[in-house]
Structure formats: C-alpha cells, structure tokens
C-alpha cells in the first residue's frame, strides 16, 4: 500500500517538478520553489533518523551549519570546489554526529531533545563568538560570504540564473528519498522501527540500539550537511544564526511531523504545505507582523499532534486507498444492506 502511494503521488509530482522551470520563468518564484524543495530535502534528512527511530532531535541544524562552514572555508581558503567541499562538509557533520549521538541516544524523550539543543547551541554560541580559530577566519556572528567568481561556473557552484540551483536541489531531494526507500527495506530500517516500537523488545531480538541509531544518525547528519552546504552556496553567505540556529532544526522537525514521520513522502508533504504558507504570510502581512508564520507553524504542529499524530499523509493515504476500494466496497455494502433488509 505504502509503495503504491509513493508512486501514485511521487510520480506525477516528480514530472511536475521537472517541468516547472519550463513554464516558471520568474526567478523569484523559481527561487521560492527551490526553497520549498530545500526544506523538503532537509526535513527528509531529519526524518532519516528521527522519523524512524522516534526521537525528536532539535540539534540537526548544527550538522547543516558545520558542513556549510566547511564547504565555504575550503572554497575561500584553499580553492577547493564546493562540490568536493559539500562532501567533505557532509563527512565532517557525520563524524561530529557520532560522539554526539553516542552520548545522546542513551537518553529518551525530552532528555534526548534538550541535550541535542544543548549541543547545537554550544556550537552556535562558540561560532558566534569566535573570529579566528587556529588561524581559520570564522568571523563570528558576522558570518562568511562566498566571493562571486563572475558568471556561471559549474566548478565554483555558482550560476547566473536560478534554474541550475533548482535542478540541483531537486536531484538532492530525489536522492534522499531514494536513500530513505532503500533504508526502509534494509535491516537498518527494520531495526530502527523496532527500536521505535519497543526498545527492550528490539534488544532481545539482537538489535544493539546505539549502534543502529548511530549509523542512521551519521547518514542523516551527512545528508543534512549536504543541504547546509547547498544553502550556503545558494545564498553565497553563511552565518551561525541562520544556518545553525534552532529555528532551522524546528522547521525540519515540524515539517516532518506534520507531513508524516517515518515515511518517504511525509517530510516533503509537510514542506509543500508549510513552507508556502510561511512564505506567503511573510510576503504579504509578515513584514509588519514578525513571526506570524511561526505562529502558524506552531498551530499546525499542535493540530497535527492532536488530530493526525502520524501526519497528514495518513488521511491522504486513506483517501487514495479508499478510492481504489470504493467500487468493491460499494458492492459489498449493497449486499449487506440487502441482507439486513431481508432480516427485518
């Protein structure tokens, strides 16, 4: 069932996504759509571990930020192409995630969540207050800019229009979804769901929860890192608050939870729903009302937790399943009605 939904929804969506730059020429709109894809990508990366293992990390922005910094610094200091820089940044984030995860995955519920916040905040505060670390110019709260190379350069990850950026993030999003699908069908996926369902029960079946959670976290951190690096390239600017503040972590978590944790499409669905709302509010009345879109996010989160604890993907799924079965069940219902009618 789940896979039919992925194909049924994902297929047309992908075709649509591929075609968008053909008829959307306004670069602002294309940029906005790319941002939706970016958040879908980030939420999907968060979901890779948190959605499946059932823990709420609000420290993932640290992975994005760290990888972004690595990419930008490698480019500005050593001239390394951001393509390689991205991978290096992702790898760095994955490395960082191992000790963090080793420490935090022993904790549960709010203890886990607040510890992830603490880790991310330590990193952010340190970065905001460090202009120079071992000769590396971090420039504190001011952040780093990526100098333009002038014109389009594939190697420098700099393009004139928005179209290349759009296709890059689209490819990344498809990639993270494919990775999630692979993971779901692998031992890792089964183990993560088992840990989420009943940790003691999983342990008794040979699952070392720390080991498998850490594996998933490292992959998730790597993916999140790639996203952070992309973001830095898109804006050619990175600073601790925007790229590793708690708001980014909250966005990833909320979109996933509203869309549907532990599913392939859920995070993207959440981003498709929430980010445009946020953007529209910001573009129209948000200017005069700072934070209005976050109020809406908060309300959506509350409503989702109360009414759709498994995400809006569930009613959607039911709708699609229902339509498929409608004719069959209508016949069955007619039959029972007839039978009951006879009995009376």
């Amino acid at each position: 069932m789940r896979h039919t939904l992925t194909l049924l929804l994902g297929g047309p969506l992908l075709v649509l996504a591929l075609a968008i730059p053909l008829f959307v020429t306004d670069s602002y709109i294309l940029h906005s759509i790319a941002m939706v894809l970016f958040f879908a990508y980030m939420a999907s990366s968060w979901n890779f571990v948190c959605g499946y293992v059932g823990q709420l990390s609000l420290g993932h922005s640290a992975f994005a930020g760290v990888a972004g910094y690595v990419t930008v610094l490698l480019f500005t200091q050593l001239g390394v192409t951001p393509w390689l820089g991205m991978l290096a940044g992702g790898a760095f984030a994955a490395l960082l995630s191992v000790p963090v995860g080793y420490a935090t995955f022993r904790l549960k519920g709010p203890y886990f969540t607040l510890t992830t916040i603490a880790f991310a905040e330590i990193l952010r505060i340190w970065l905001e207050n460090t202009d120079d670390f071992l000769g590396i110019p971090l420039k504190g709260a001011q952040g780093l800019t990526v100098p333009p190379v002038g014109g389009s350069s594939f190697l420098a990850f700099q393009f004139d229009g928005k179209v290349p950026y759009y296709y890059i993030i689209l490819a990344m999003l498809v990639g993270v979804m494919a990775a999630t699908a692979l993971m779901e069908r692998s031992r890792l996926g089964f183990y993560l769901k088992a840990i989420r369902g009943d940790r003691d029960g999983a342990e008794a079946l040979g699952v070392d929860p720390t080991r498998y959670s850490l594996t998933a976290l490292a992959i998730s951190a790597f993916l999140t890192g790639l996203g952070g690096a992309y973001y830095a390239q898109l804006f050619r600017y990175i600073n601790p608050e925007r790229n590793m503040g708690i708001d980014l972590s909250i966005d990833m978590a909320i979109m996933t939870i509203v869309g549907g944790q532990g599913t392939i499409l859920g995070p993207t669905l959440g981003a498709l729903l929430l980010h445009p709302i946020g953007e529209m509010v910001r573009a129209t009345i948000g200017g005069s009302f700072l934070g209005l879109h976050l109020i809406l996010y908060g309300l959506m989160l509350i409503l989702a937790v109360i009414y759709f604890p498994k995400g809006i993907i569930v009613p959607l799924q039911r709708l699609l399943d229902g339509r498929a079965r409608k004719s069959a069940s209508r016949k069955a219902a007619a039959k029972t009605d007839a039978l009951e009618g006879k009995g009376q």
């Binding site: 089964f190 769901k193 088992a194 989420r196 369902g197 009943d198 029960g201 999983a202 008794a204």
Partner: peptide
C-alpha cells in the same frame, strides 16, 4: 519473550 507483549507498531 516478555511478560507484556508489545509488537512493533506500524509493522
């Protein structure tokens, strides 16, 4: 097995 059986939900 456990005294209280808890299946892995969602599977």
């Amino acid at each position: 097995t456990f005294q209280l059986s808890k299946p892995f939900g969602g599977l």
